[in-house]
Design a protein around this nucleic acid. Structure first.
Lengths: 209, 209
DNA sequence: AGACGGTTTAACCATCTGGTTAGAAAGTAG
DNA sequence: CTACTTTCTAACCAGATGGTTAAACCGTCT
């Protein structure tokens, strides 16, 4: 049996994945053209179909890569023994850093998840589902400690997590609308986001104080 | 001069707009097919081009209609003299009701706004910009009153508004992901959203208490 | 009735798009 | 070097898609 060089192969395949990543995220799956991906990767279009049978296949591969970089690391941190306040700080920080560098990413994720809900499940292996449950359980315990100590109305860990994610992520998804409604230029919006990164943790902690 | 029947004309045109609305929102602009819109409206495809020169034109008309139903009413309420707490209640309530009925709407808005930022500006007339500024000014005063009275760290009205919008809207955009991560079926997610509608106002008020 | 103008349609067209194929390069084993 | 496999490409194809056109339709005015 002949062993392929391995290096060349991986280079071409990951090169295609990188190009597809960029184009799919920028244009959306429907808006992306296989030819543009091929050009961007510096490869013949037929090669895309050689490594990935169809456009849908390629899109799925890209989706899995992106989802893997988006969720597991941060969710593991959220399941750890860190104090709740530190978790909030790190959550805000992590997504702020990631989304500042990939402005189209969230619109892509939201859009494709809404129109092809099945791919969301594709990404969630049994192990990842368990990890999510662990995280929720841990958060629930930490929040219960807090609300009990301070005599505050009880708060569902799920709801808090969603609010945390919403507060961090949504502004990036809604960036153009925020800019228009507040009358801010690109630099001013960046400043607004930076301000937000600093203020948001305190705001959220106050709500569960 | 011949006067067109008026009724028929308006029916056909708005019929097309209604159909286009549904299809564009469901599939996204790139994913929508002119033929599907025509079929859905019960009209020949050429008629779409008779009333709206191109697909882009039709998409723009739909966008403007949706944006008009999405923003101005609620923002006017936010600029009114209502107490801040009531505004929070109404804001949560209004978007909850709207988005429960139009599950794809937010993904559509986020996606198209991200990929065609210019259309966001198209919608914001000078008058609407003024209205937005009025709303911010009013909110700023109301929040200042609160934070001063309760000796809390000052809070930007803009940041609060974004957090409010994020907490209400994002869960609908992220619905499939929430469902998968929390392991909820469609009915359980509805219940989760309903719970959220009830809990969220208190959570937000606590943060600016 | 008949002419006229806006409305609607069937048929058509040029182009684009995802996907295929046959074969050329290029790497590998013997 | 030769035989063989994998990688890569140019050319091609069928179907879809946005858009056009010429003519039919239909109410209204004279």
């Amino acid at each position: 049996m002949v062993k392929p060089s391995g290096k060349t192969k991986r280079d071409a395949k990951t090169g295609i994945l990188d190009a597809a990543d960029e184009i799919f995220v920028r244009r959306g799956i429907d808006g992306a053209r296989m030819q543009e991906i091929a050009d961007h990767a510096g490869v013949n279009k037929a090669l895309l179909h050689y490594y990935f049978r169809s456009k849908a296949d390629l899109a799925r591969a890209v989706w899995l890569r992106i989802a893997s970089s988006f969720v597991p690391g941060i969710f593991q941190m959220m399941a750890s023994d860190l104090p709740l306040d530190d978790k909030i700080d790190r959550f805000v920080e992590a997504y702020h850093a990631k989304l500042m560098r990939h402005p189209y990413l969230l619109a892509y994720v939201v859009n494709e998840a809404a129109r092809h809900p099945e791919i969301v499940g594709d990404f969630l292996s049994a192990e990842r589902r368990r990890a999510a449950r662990r995280m929720i359980r841990k958060l629930r315990a930490q929040i219960a400690d807090r609300t009990k100590a301070k005599r505050v109305a009880p708060l569902s860990a799920e709801q808090f997590l969603v609010t945390l994610a919403a507060s961090c992520l949504f502004p990036f998804a809604a960036r153009p609308m925020i800019a228009s409604l507040l009358g801010l230029g690109p630099k001013a919006v960046d400043a607004f986001m930076e301000q937000r990164r600093k203020d948001l943790p305190a705001f959220l902690k106050r709500a569960i104080r």
